Amino acid sequence: MEASGGRESPEPSGAAAASFAGRLPKPKLTPAQLDTQLQDAVRLKAEGNGFYRGKRVRSAIGSYHRALLVLRSLDSEVTAGIQGFGTEVPVLTPAQDELLRNTQVDCYNNLAACLLQKQSVDYARVQEYSLRVLRRRPGDPKALYRAGVATLELGDAHTAKQYLTQACSGQPKDANVKKYLLKAEEKLKSELQKEKAMYRGMFSSSSKAEESNQASVTSG
C-alpha cells in the first residue's frame, strides 16, 4: 500500500516474526512466580519419591526429570550463559537458591537410586548423577555408595574403593556398602596377582632367553 511518498513498512510475519519476538526481552519473573515454580519442582520431587516407594521406578524417573527441567530454567549457573539473547535471568534470594540446590541434589541422588533398580543399568549415568551430588554434598553416604558401585562396574576398582570406604564411614552397618567394598578389594587383589604373574612371566622369558644366548656362545 502506498503512503505519502513511500511504501508502508511491512509487518514481520511467519518465521521472521517469531525470530523478532525471540529477541525481545522476556518479562521478569515476580518473586511470587519464582516461588510457584520452585514449589512445582518440590512437588514433582515428592511425587517421584512416592512413585519410588511404590516401586514405580519409571514414573519416578519421569517426575525427577520434570523437576530438574523446572529448576534448570531458574538456575543462574545455566541461565547466566544466555544473557543478552532475550532471556531475563531470574534473581533468586539466598533462601530460594538454597531450596533450588537442595531439590536438584535430591533429584540427582534419587535418579541414581532409580537407575540402579532397572534391569539394564546405565552405570555411566549413575556415576554422573552421583558425582553431581558429591560436588554439592561431598560426604553424602548414599551418593558415595552409588558412585562406588557405578565406578566399580565401569572397571575402576581403585577409585571405587575410595568412594566405598568413605561410604562405609558414614554407613558402617550397611550390608550393601560392605558387600561392594569387599568386591572392590577382591578385584584389586585379583588385579595385583595378575600383574605379579605377568611380571614373573616376563622375567622368566627374559631369563630363558639369556640362558639360551649364553649356551649358544659357549657351544660356539
Score class of each variant (00 low, 15 high):
G6L: 10
R7E: 12
R7N: 10
E8S: 07
E8N: 07
E8A: 09
S9H: 08
P10Q: 09
P10E: 07
E11I: 09
P12C: 06
P12S: 03
P12E: 04
P12K: 04
P12I: 02
G14W: 03
G14Y: 02
A15R: 10
A16D: 14
A18Q: 13
A18I: 13
S19V: 11
S19C: 07
F20M: 12
A21C: 08
A21F: 09
G22T: 07
G22F: 10
L24H: 10
P25F: 02
P25Q: 07
K26Y: 09
P27S: 06
P27W: 02
K28V: 12
K28A: 15
K28M: 14
T30W: 04
P31T: 01
P31S: 04
P31H: 04
A32C: 06
Q33M: 10
L34R: 04
L34E: 01
D35H: 08
T36V: 11
Q37V: 07
Q37G: 03
Q39W: 08
Q39V: 06
D40R: 09
D40T: 08
V42I: 14
R43V: 05
L44K: 07
L44G: 00
K45F: 03
K45H: 08
K45I: 02
A46R: 13
A46M: 10
A46D: 12
A46H: 11
E47L: 06
E47N: 10
G48T: 05
G48Y: 01
G48I: 03
N49M: 08
G50V: 04
G50S: 11
R53D: 12
R53V: 11
K55A: 10
K55Q: 13
K55W: 09
R56P: 02
V57G: 01
V57M: 06
V57A: 02
R58N: 12
S59D: 14
S59H: 05
A60L: 00
I61K: 07
I61S: 04
G62K: 08
G62W: 06
G62D: 15
G62S: 15
Y64H: 02
H65M: 11
R66E: 14
R66K: 14
A67V: 03
A67Q: 00
L68Y: 01
L68W: 00
L69I: 09
V70C: 00
V70Y: 00
L71F: 01
R72L: 09
R72N: 12
S73D: 15
S73E: 13
D75K: 00
E77W: 06
E77K: 11
T79R: 06
A80T: 14
I82W: 09
I82L: 12
I82V: 15
Q83S: 12
Q83Y: 05
G84C: 04
G84T: 04
G84S: 07
F85N: 10
F85G: 07
F85L: 15
F85Q: 09
F85C: 07
G86M: 05
G86N: 06
T87W: 13
T87N: 12
T87Q: 12
T87F: 13
E88A: 15
E88H: 13
V89P: 00
V89N: 05
V89M: 13
P90E: 03
P90C: 05
V91I: 10
L92F: 01
L92R: 00
T93Y: 06
P94W: 01
A95W: 06
